[in-house]
Simulated assay, not measured.
Amino acid sequence: MGKVDAAAVATAHPRVPRRILDALTGHSIDWWLISEDLPRIGNRVLLRPDGGIALDRQPAGARAHRRLVRTGARMMRRAGCPLVLTHRMGIEHTGHQCGTTVAGHDPARSVLDPYCRSHEVHNLYVVDGGFFPSSAAVNPTLTIIAQALRTARHAPVLP
């Protein structure tokens, strides 16, 4: 994401004067600690009665992530950084959603077959990060491209 600036930090800390944020971010070392949010079968994206979208989600691995952040903060202090500030990003800051369309052989437990074809709509293929069981906390773009090529080779050619 690059260097954090005062404008970005102000969204999380709107009451801190901009000149203080400028001074802090101008002398900061920015780190992102990413951990995997392991899948839970009960997590769902639902359509509300008013047509809006609701997220029914219980994060997994939160305790391990907090331990990772504490360890990283200790390392930064030992490296000579006296002030370590942390901020946890929520689900709204996620750029690589994975596991939203479970793939598998059993239509009762998955929505896609192993080639990303819908079990119920036979001319529908979903080739994005949704077929991954989880994210592995890295950018999934190259794996999505590889799966798209694999799916394209397997898909029937339409007239």
Rank of each mutant, 00 (worst) to 15 (best):
M76I: 12
P82S: 14
G104Q: 07
C116S: 12
A73Y: 12
A62V: 12
H122V: 12
E120F: 15
D56G: 03
P39M: 01
L68Q: 11
A62H: 08
G104D: 08
N123P: 05
H87T: 09
C98L: 10
G99D: 03
V111Y: 07
L112Q: 03
G51I: 07
H119G: 06
R44K: 11
E92I: 09
S110W: 05
R66E: 10
G80N: 12
C81M: 15
G90D: 15
R70K: 04
C98A: 13
L47V: 04
P114H: 04
N43T: 02
S135D: 00
P49T: 09
V45D: 01
R66M: 09
G42M: 03
R74Y: 10
H93L: 07
T100Y: 05
L46K: 14
D128L: 03
H122A: 13
L46N: 10
S134K: 06
P82F: 11
A73Q: 08
R67W: 07
F132V: 00
V84I: 13
S110V: 11
E120C: 14
L83P: 05
A79P: 07
A64S: 14
G95H: 06
L85T: 15
C116K: 02
V127F: 05
G130Q: 00
R117D: 01
R48F: 01
R67V: 09
I41A: 11
C98N: 07
T94M: 14
H105Q: 14
R40L: 06
H65N: 06
R88M: 04
D113H: 01
P59E: 10
R74M: 11
R109S: 13
V127L: 08
E92A: 14
G129D: 01
G99I: 10
R63W: 12
G42K: 00
S118I: 14
M89H: 12
F132W: 00
C81H: 15
N43F: 02
R67T: 13
L68V: 05
V121R: 14
N43R: 01
T86D: 08
E120M: 13
S135R: 00
P39Q: 02
P107I: 13
V121W: 12
R88K: 05
L46W: 07
F132S: 00
F131I: 04
F131C: 01
D128R: 04
R57S: 01
H119F: 06
P133Y: 03
I41M: 06
L124S: 05
D128S: 02
H96G: 06
R88N: 11
G61H: 07
H119Q: 02
A79D: 11
Q97Y: 11
T94C: 12
L112W: 01
A108W: 15
P59M: 08
N123G: 08
P114K: 02
G61S: 02
T86N: 07
I91M: 06
V121M: 12
G42I: 01
R78H: 12
H93R: 13
I41P: 13
G51M: 05
D106H: 11
L112V: 08
G104R: 13
A108P: 12
D106S: 13
N123H: 11
G61I: 06
T100R: 06
N43D: 01
E120P: 09
G99L: 03
R78P: 07
L46I: 13
A103V: 08
R70Q: 08
R63S: 14
T71N: 06
A54V: 04
R117N: 06
P39I: 02
L55D: 01
I41S: 11
L55M: 09
V121D: 11
D50V: 02
R117Q: 09
H119C: 04
L68H: 07
